[in-house]
């Protein structure tokens, strides 16, 4: 592996979250206005539907140094576009399988359904994902030169 000489101490994971416009983003908003405690180390990209998230985008973030990527969308059956999130689920299954096969820790990616009313769920999901990533440490790809 690349030269691992950057300090491990004071490590703050970088987490990227994709939120669907209709459910999860509103859920995140609700968590915010409700002043719920959440880790502050995630950046959000709002997409119109979780199925907008090509697995390649998720891997792009990982290759560019993100320590974890979470995709969130409406609960199955509640998709604003009727069926989008079913496709998301298939994409996630494909992504996780490919990551597993090439030896990348698939737990660094996650799919979760969060509705507009589930502010507390959004907050707890972020807590949970942050804890998982923290326990894993730095994404090994973030320091690999030969990518």
């Amino acid at each position: 592996m690349a030269d691992k000489k950057k300090k491990e101490a004071g490590y703050e994971p970088k987490i990227l979250s994709f939120c669907c416009n209709w459910c999860s983003y509103a859920g995140a908003d609700l968590a915010g206005v409700s002043r719920l405690q959440m880790p502050a180390n995630f950046r959000t990209i709002r997409v119109m539907c979780s199925s907008r998230v090509n697995p390649v985008y998720v891997f792009t973030a990982l290759e560019r140094g993100a320590d974890g990527v979470i995709v969130t969308g409406c609960h199955p059956g509640d998709c604003h576009y009727a069926r989008g999130n079913y496709f998301t689920r298939r994409r996630q299954a494909l992504l996780e399988k490919v990551l597993e096969e090439i030896g990348f820790d698939r737990e660094r990616v996650m799919l979760r359904w969060i509705s507009a009313s589930e502010g507390p769920e959004f907050a707890s999901t972020m807590e949970e994902f942050d804890a998982t990533i923290r326990s894993k440490g730095k994404n090994p790809l973030s320091e690999e030169v030969f990518l």
């Binding site: 290759e63 992504l95 490919v98 090439i102 030169v145 030969f146 990518l147």
Partner: peptide
């Protein structure tokens, strides 16, 4: 900034993983 060095052209491994994600199915 992050790694102190980078391969040129960039994205070699990414190309193969990306292609796996696009066509392996």
């Amino acid at each position: 900034k992050r790694k102190g060095a980078t391969r040129a052209p960039p994205g070699t491994v990414f190309f193969h993983v990306g292609r796996l994600l696009h066509m392996s199915i």
